[in-house]
């Protein structure tokens, strides 16, 4: 392992919280990057505004405590993406864990498309990630998350990640995944990842799924699209690498959006 020796200075890492707020008129009343989390308003390719998270420096390193808070106010539409993959790396103290908190709030009639690039867990990294989503009853969400176990040909770092989504104050989805050295045993066995080096989820929430649920279906051998108990759809996929994973999730998103587009008249009539 090539973790740098613990230096005498800055043993605790960076603390930073970036904040975004989007309003219905297309403005961004709050756009405040912090430390390694730089934010840019970028050209939107669809209705609403778009923000790109630009990695101003490598993060998260062991010991860092990073957070992004996003509020999409009633009636607003926001897409958030990132300029590059996030690479978790070991910090000065190889035993120090990094923490990354993502808090997303989507108001009535608002839409958030949260489409960051992959999280790559480099060898020796230790990251604890928590994503919390609070949706109003009429909010719409598209959320993608992808984790890659190590850079090319590399052993993975350690990740503990949890995605919790509430809609109208009630739990809609709660999923935790742990892998890498020190994670509870069996994570690479036949029940969990079985040697696959990329794993991801695509969550789409729209109240139209409550009245018109999708049918579960397989997307190849190692991915499926399923209706949740609430008005949402989840695609779960594992793949040998990040590219194949993205291909599966992109195809699923495209199919779901085609379906949504076909629903527009009925959907609009409900409003």
């Amino acid at each position: 392992m090539s973790a740098p020796a613990a230096g005498p200075q800055a043993p605790t890492g960076v603390r930073a919280t970036a904040r975004i707020a989007a309003a219905a008129d297309g403005s961004l009343p709050l756009l405040a990057g912090d430390g390694p989390l730089a934010l840019r308003r970028t050209r939107a390719t669809r209705a609403g505004s778009r923000v790109t998270v630009v990695g101003a420096m490598t993060a998260p390193l062991g010991g860092d405590r990073l957070a992004i808070e996003t509020e999409v106010r009633a009636g607003a539409r926001l897409t958030v993406d990132s300029a590059a993959a996030t690479v978790a790396l070991p910090g000065r103290d190889p035993a120090a864990e990094a923490h990354y908190e993502v808090r997303l709030r989507v108001g009535e009639g608002a839409e958030l498309r949260w489409l960051p690039e992959q999280l790559v867990c480099a060898r020796g990294s230790r990251l604890r990630m928590r994503t919390r989503v609070e949706l109003a009853p009429t909010a719409r969400l598209v959320l993608r998350e992808e984790q890659v176990l190590g850079r090319y040909g590399e052993q993975p770092g350690t990740l503990a990640t949890r995605l919790t989504a509430h809609r109208a104050g009630r739990p809609l989805l709660d999923q935790e995944l742990h892998f890498g050295p020190g994670a509870p045993g069996g994570w690479d066995g036949g029940a969990v990842l079985a040697g696959h080096r990329a794993v991801g989820q695509l969550l789409v929430v729209d109240r139209c799924f409550g009245t018109d649920p999708v049918e579960p279906r397989m997307l190849g051998e190692t991915a499926c699209l399923v209706p949740l108990a609430g008005p949402g759809v989840l695609v779960t996929a594992v793949a040998p690498d990040a590219l194949l994973l993205r291909r599966t999730l992109d195809a699923a998103l495209e199919a779901l959006e085609r379906r949504s587009a076909a629903d527009v008249p009925a959907h609009a009539a409900v409003r």
Partner: peptide
């Protein structure tokens, strides 16, 4: 209750759907 563990197994979820068919 909200903080109870939520540990999940992607392949169990995926193959359960295939198996049901």
């Amino acid at each position: 209750v909200d903080e109870l563990p939520a540990a999940s197994a992607p392949l169990l979820d995926i193959t359960a759907e295939a198996h049901a068919g």
